[in-house]
Design a protein around this nucleic acid. Sequence first.
DNA 1: CAGTGAGCGAGCTTCCGCTTGACTT
Length: 777
Amino acid sequence: MSKKLVIVESPSKAKTIQKYLGDDYIIESSYGHVRDLPKKDISIDVSNNFEPNYVVSDDKKEVVKKLKKLAKEVDEVLLATDEDREGEAISWHLCEILGLDAKTAKRITYTEVTKDAILKALNNPRKLNMGLVNAQQARRVLDRIVGYELSPVLWKKVKPSLSAGRVQSVAVRIIVEREREITNFDSNSFFKVSALFDVEDKQGRRTVLKAELPKRLANEAEAMQLLEECKNSNFTIGNIEKKPSQKNPAAPFITSTLQQEANRKLGFPVGKTMSVAQKLYEAGHITYMRTDSVSLSQTAVNAAVNEITSSYGEEYVKVRKYSTKAKDAQEAHEAIRPTNFGEQEAGANFDEQRLYDLIWKRSIASQMSSAKIERTIVSVEISESSERLQAKGEVLVFDGFLKVYLEGKDEEDDDDDVSGMLPPLAVGQDLDLQEITGTERFTKPSARYTEASLVKKLEELGIGRPSTYAPTISTIQKRGYVEKTNRDGVERKYTVLKLSSNSIVSNQDTEVTGAEKMKLFPTDIGSVVNDFLMEHFSEIMEYDFTAQMEHSFDKIEEGETEWSAMVSKFYKPFHESVEDTIENADRASGERILGKDPKSGHTLLVRVGRYGPMAQIGAPDEVEKPQYAKLLPTQSIETITAEEAIALFILPRVVGEFEDEEVKAAIGRFGPYLLHKKKFVSITKDSELDPYTIQLPDAIRLIEEKRVADANKFIMEFEEEGIQVLNGRWGPYIRKEKKNFKIPKEVEAEKLTLPEVLDIIKNQPAKRGKSKAKAKK
DNA sequence: CAGTGAGCGAGCTTCCGCTTGACTT
């Protein structure tokens, strides 16, 4: 019997396929790409047709060794990597390292991991598609050139260790531009009018009908005028309009929509969604989670139909085919769905269970009938005004897919005020007015991005791939271009006019506006780098740069263009502008001159310095030694005012004297602190105190609290050995010569003896030392 | 652990897209 080796990309997939095939087949996994350009330098021979220097990555040496050995033992190797550009390239690299002839090697593909699909694929092997492989090489080489030529420009002109790239730099641009849009937004106020009427419901009970003025009124005077007219008006039902409508379910999940929905409904950051989904995938509960295809296999549709029929009834079934919107989608996999629809619950922990539940519901709902809704719009006439009010009602006639699942929204529309069922009403009916209010509202700028809504935007622009959304978002945060933070809102007053019992009262109310939770904000360094790249490398920063590139890749795939010719066409002008920029561009610091310091008369400016954003008094030509102060975490060089900048120089500030020594307040690397007798005391955020305004009594209290905490810190001490057992933030730990050691959970710290302590120190596992270990080499 | 911001120079940093583990301060 002849043996065959089938190579796929993912080990979980290998396991599944092994179940479908007999002992004649050995299914192994390549764990993704097996060769790549080394990290240390650009590794492309520009003068030799951009020849890439591919090497087997360190973490793939073992895999490659195993595959080589197996390839020798079998009669045939089948390349079953994903059916997309990257998958085709992996197969080609496998040929290269396994010594297979790329012209004759057997390539098999399938877009769903079902037994039928796999067997069909095995019977229809094809040859390697070198067009796809070459398009991938162009993609790889181009990304390397952009990343490895642009980043060093930033090291020279902005700050070391920064990075730029086709995907990440555009992601940062999106965030920077949105922030500026918000900063420059002029909020206008307007008035919304709504009325409450007393009416009888079906059972004859008094109930409330809410009606609104469909349009906005420009100002208080207009609102007041309408209310005045209403004072002496009668209100009657003018018209009742009923409109049947229907709602359709959303398509099954792909990576980007899963990330968005898990963020909206479960509050997961995108990286968490991916790692939880990975666990579900490895346990065999769901199909592959990195996909851009909304299609379901026939097997899956049948299973969903069975489940819907038995759980909800036949009238809830509607088989639907979804097509993928993104035009650059590669559709190498199915949509993300449960592998077994009969399994309503799965997952090893709460997070996995919740994510599985979401996937199960979304997939099931995608094959369910539409919800039927009857919308009613009732107009209310005002006898003394030409305006009309409107009441909207919605009745669910048939729930359909809503029985299971409704997609979440990114922003609540407060305009969309649909209340459920309306009471019975008749045309010409008179209405009893309870009250009418005119409420001042404000126009809002576009919302800041969350991780998930940024993924949505990137996907719309065709930038990035399912496997890179989460890593990209983490990269731009790691580089310090973007921060995910909360922001407190500010109070805002608004006017409410209320007409009731025939008199109009005007009141001021306050609301909190602009509060943000887990939103992406650009940092100053992010803005400075963005502006620099926009000025000197606008082509790469264009939102459609990737789309244009994809267009060229299509031509390579079709064999119209050589991949190196395409890269060359891009490289020449790009490299020239890199050299020109290095030669001629000024350093970028985002410097803004805010005016003069009133005390010294010297220039007051803000800029990004070596340690981040700072304010400075005195330009280099004015004074020998300028004064510097770091900006607060909430401030930015783009929006800080001169007053705020001057206030930064108040620190360090002497609060007063305590026990014959000065108490100083300042802000350091770890936030605000007090300094007294050479001891640091943090001014914690929750204490509502800050170093600018803190007074002596509060300062003394903090110092004394710290003394108590320090006193409780010591559990025991072995002075001769220089060992202490201390209470820390994460529980008790051992300290020796400035090194900390973890105490195993099961050990009671209070009862430790010296030999036990020494034992813990000796057996402490090495710290995670990836970077350190490498540095030593 | 907390205060820095001159200037020099060595050595380092960096991309995107496929995959999983090995780590948790």
